[in-house]
Structures are given as structure tokens and as C-alpha cells.
């Protein structure tokens, strides 16, 4: 399925190059990323108004389709859509292992019949949002937009965008930066989206720091420098992005133990001291304190983990209001 996205016209873009769906940061032009980040900026201050809303998506139906649980992402999309005055319908669809493509598209057909305008899709299967977008075109409903809220190991573009927004907010120019992404790169759609976003924006030095068992094969081909030694990898970094270590990884053969992982790849004040003196620390959440990050760092002066959450709402508002615009 992932091969489809790479052939022919970028399926996210309309005929005039406008953003019709947000499926992945891979292949998304820098101008569109910049347009999204610029648009997010005035949305940040909406929360300070007496009426915390703008009327852009008034009367539009935004359907949150979560085939996989995620309270935080669903909530921030819901807040974003509501601040744009959309009507939000939350559907938590637990998906059984047997229900595959056909029932997914049946669900979509039914929701189209309920006059949806926009689908926000979270799915355990890589490529599900892309499949939905292609299906909408096939059934002549290309006026309905799809935003990927995380699919399998593939992509989590709005998380990548909010990470880019946060980095730009604190560090201004991507082209001067050294950024390290630390942890479970192999299973992380967050890492994949951020890597594509940062390389498109021309970051100077992009590093991944992880044990061999948590790195995908040929990861260098994505334009990153690989470090197995965390201390060496953190040296001089302007931005340190920590990834969540999912507890199920501990049970497998990929890692010895949580304690061992923390010793080698956990971010402590001592290791952070090797980065640039004004380095910022990011984490997509939810955090495992004492596994990938020390509390002293997570709650410390360099941590921008909570601003990431606030910016995430503004970035999602920007994405929703840009994709819901006219498409040629």
C-alpha cells in the first residue's frame, strides 16, 4: 500500500498543488509546510479570547475516526475542530483483527451518507488514511478531506508538524540546527514524520540515536546520521527529541531491561549537559519517566514538552482549515 503514495501525482495535493488531504509529510513541499506553520501562529492566541473560536469551519462536520485508541491526539483534534466552530463527531471504532479493507470502506460510505466534510483517521494499519482518500476520489466524493492522525508505523504528520512548529518557535532557522531523535526509531511513526519534515526544511545535521535493534534497516537513506552512543550523539545538539519506549518492546527480545535502556538511552541532566547550553528537550508524550527520560529533565528548564501540546492544537487548527479550503 505504501508504494501507491510514491507513484504519479502526490495524492495529498489537488490539481493546483493545494493541500486536499494530509496523509504524510513525505513528499510534502516545503512551501506547504511553511504555510501550515505560518497559519498556526495566529491560531495560538485564539485561546486568549473571550470567545475561544473562529467561524472558519462553521457548519462543517468533522468526524474523528479512531480505529486505535489515543486520548490525547483525539482530544487535541476535537479541541482544534471546535475552535474552528466545526461540529465534531467522535467515533471510537475498536477494530477486530478480522475486519480489514472492505468493512473500513463500508464504514466510510456510511459516514459519507451522514454528510461528513472531513475525516480525522487513526488506524493501526499503515496506509489506511491513504486508502480512504483514494476511495473518496473513486466514489466521487473528493470534496471530503482526510487528515491522518497516525497510521501504523507509517506516519503521524500532525505530530511531525507540531514538532516542527515547536522547533521553529524556539530556534527560528531550521538550516542552522543540529537535531537528535532518540529512542525507538523502528516502531515510531512520530520519528518517521519528523525525519521527513526536518529534511524537507533543510535542517543542518539530523541525528538518530538508538540501539541497533530499534533502528530500521538502511535508516541512513532517510538523510540521518546514526549514533549508537548517546553521549556522542548528543554533543552540540540544539534540539533533543525523546521518543516513548512502548512497554511491549521490553517484553520482546529487542532490549535487555528498562533499567539497562535508561542507563544507555535515557535522557538525564548529565547527558543533556553534552548538548548545546540552550538546547530544548521535546517528547511527543505520553512519557515513561525513568525509562526514556529522567524527571529532572522532563520538568526542567529546557523542557518544552507542555508547549508542544499547546502548539499541537494550533497546528491542527491550521491543518484542518487549510485542507477544508477549496480544492480544484
Amino acid at each position: 500500500m505504501s508504494g501507491v503514495a510514491r507513484t504519479g501525482r502526490n495524492p495529498q495535493l489537488g490539481r493546483n498543488g493545494e493541500l486536499a488531504h494530509l496523509l504524510s509529510l513525505e513528499g510534502l513541499p516545503a512551501e506547504i509546510i511553511t504555510h501550515i506553520l505560518d497559519t498556526a501562529e495566529p491560531f495560538v492566541s485564539i485561546a486568549e479570547r473571550e470567545v475561544k473560536k473562529v467561524p472558519l469551519l462553521r457548519g462543517k462536520g468533522v468526524f474523528n475516526l479512531f480505529f486505535e485508541n489515543s486520548t490525547r491526539t483525539r482530544t487535541t483534534f476535537e479541541i482544534a475542530a471546535k475552535r474552528l466552530s466545526a461540529d465534531v463527531i467522535n467515533l471510537n471504532i475498536g477494530v477486530s483483527s478480522t475486519s480489514k479493507g472492505e468493512s473500513l470502506l463500508d464504514t466510510i460510505d456510511n459516514l459519507c451518507a451522514m454528510n461528513a466534510d472531513l475525516f480525522v483517521v487513526r488506524h493501526a494499519q499503515s496506509g489506511a488514511p491513504h486508502l480512504i482518500a483514494s476511495h473518496l476520489t473513486a466514489i466521487g466524493r473528493s470534496g471530503i478531506h482526510v487528515v491522518n492522525a497516525g497510521d501504523g508505523r507509517h506516519a503521524h504528520p500532525t505530530q511531525g508538524l507540531l514538532d516542527l512548529y515547536t522547533i521553529r518557535h524556539y530556534k527560528k532557522d531550521f538550516r542552522a540546527l543540529t537535531v537528535a531523535i532518540v529512542g525507538d526509531i523502528l516502531h515510531s511513526r512520530v520519528a518517521r514524520s519528523l525525519i521527513h519534515g526536518l529534511t524537507t526544511m533543510g535542517v543542518a545535521d539530523l541525528r538518530v540515536i538508538a540501539p541497533r535493534t530499534l533502528l530500521p534497516g538502511r535508516v541512513e537513506s532517510l538523510g540521518v546520521h546514526v549514533h549508537y552512543d548517546m553521549r556522542e550523539g548528543l554533543r552540540g545538539c540544539d534540539v533533543v527529541v525523546m521518543l516513548r519506549l512502548q512497554s511491549e518492546r521490553m517484553k520482546g527480545a529487542l532490549l535487555p531491561s528498562a533499567g539497562e535502556y535508561f542507563k544507555n538511552y535515557g535522557l538525564t541532566p548529565g547527558k543533556l549537559a553534552l548538548a548545546a547550553p540552550d538546547a530544548i528537550v521535546m517528547h511527543p508524550g505520553p512519557m515513561n519517566r525513568g525509562v526514556e527520560i529522567d524527571s529532572a529533565v522532563a520538568d526542567g528548564a529546557r523542557s518544552v514538552i507542555l508547549p508542544q501540546v499547546t502548539f499541537g492544537i494550533a497546528v491542527r487548527m491550521a491543518v484542518l482549515s487549510i485542507v477544508a479550503g477549496p480544492v480544484a
Binding site: H35, T39, E41, P42, S45, E50, V54, L56, G325, P326
Partner: peptide, 27 residues
């Protein structure tokens, strides 16, 4: 910046570089 309140959004979309509305007084 009235971009988020315009009545032609459905036709014209959002222009680039929307500015932040700033009203530094009690409205």
C-alpha cells in the same frame, strides 16, 4: 486580521501569512 472571519473562505481558502489579531485593551 480578518482572514478567519471572511465570508469567502469556502471559495478562496486561507491566504498565506495570516497575522495575529492583537487588541491590547479591554474590548
Amino acid at each position: 486580521d480578518v482572514s478567519f472571519y471572511r465570508d469567502d473562505y469556502a471559495r478562496a481558502g486561507l491566504k498565506p501569512n495570516v497575522k495575529r489579531t492583537a487588541l491590547p485593551f479591554e474590548v
